[in-house]
Design a protein around this nucleic acid. Structure first.
Lengths: 140, 140
DNA sequence: TATTGTTATACTCTATAACTATA
DNA sequence: TATAGTTATAGAGTATAACAATA
């Protein structure tokens, strides 16, 4: 039976490591993390409403509006009225947004994705399992 | 032999889960995370220089100066000249800083530390192992 | 010259509150 | 009334550049 760890120390270490990792990701990207997240999601899932993007990223709709306004200003996304519901706005990738995403992916190959690929299958599994746990903690 | 996962998807999920977790932690704390980190470190390790705090938290010295200036304004820490090196400033906890830290720890017991304690020993081990991996990724 | 820390400035990221427009 | 989104505002968190003081 595995022994229980000191949860206060584990909590501190969690905060420190996660904080460091976020700063490292930020430094590595060519454009803001929050924007990259939206680009990736639009590419994977297609055009969708602002509220749905906010829910998926688990930020407030107001925060997402701000991110999208910045991105629209940079020509990465386009706002389109939803024909079936006048309250909704659909967000879609522009060609420039897609190019930017692909350039970022190529660049990150030099770091995160490549580093992850360097891990053993067991290590990748450990990381994936830990993400499940982290998500469970976040939901509580 | 464990199969290799899709590293692009794992990278996306890593960003999402970690981002969500950080926002959850931020929302749960009574005062800024960066300040809580400093309070905990000073309590565990005792008074130390600004540069050493910055290195431990892996932020720039300028960022740490800013954090500490805010904290000093709130009476959480005190700047003391290092008697052995006029360039250095030692940071020490004030009684108010210690009280604040202890109050925060009691409050967090209601969430993170308690949630971690609810995990099985194996799950805690998975999380601790993943932190090692995450730290290795951050260092690369 | 090298090291420690600060000031000035700016950007990212997110939140709450109050609002408008549509259903 | 309820829902989708926006505007206004503020605060946390961090960075780079330029600087002063001390070793």
């Amino acid at each position: 039976m595995a022994k229980t760890l000191d949860t206060t120390l584990l909590a501190s270490r969690l905060r420190l490591v996660v904080g460091h990792f976020v700063r490292r990701m930020r430094a590595e990207h060519r454009f803001p993390l929050a924007q990259g997240a939206v680009l990736g999601r639009l590419d994977r899932e297609g055009a969708q409403s602002i509220g749905s993007l906010a829910a998926a990223e688990r930020v407030r709709p107001q925060s997402m509006t701000q991110t999208l306004t910045d991105m629209e200003g940079d020509g990465l996304v386009k706002r389109c009225p939803d024909p079936s519901d006048g309250r909704r706005t659909l967000i879609e990738l522009t060609p420039h947004g897609l190019e930017t995403l692909e350039a970022d992916r190529r660049h990150r190959e030099g770091w995160l994705a490549e580093s992850l690929a360097d891990l053993s299958g067991a290590e990748q599994r450990t990381l994936a399992d830990a993400l499940e746990l982290l998500e469970r903690l976040s939901e509580k």
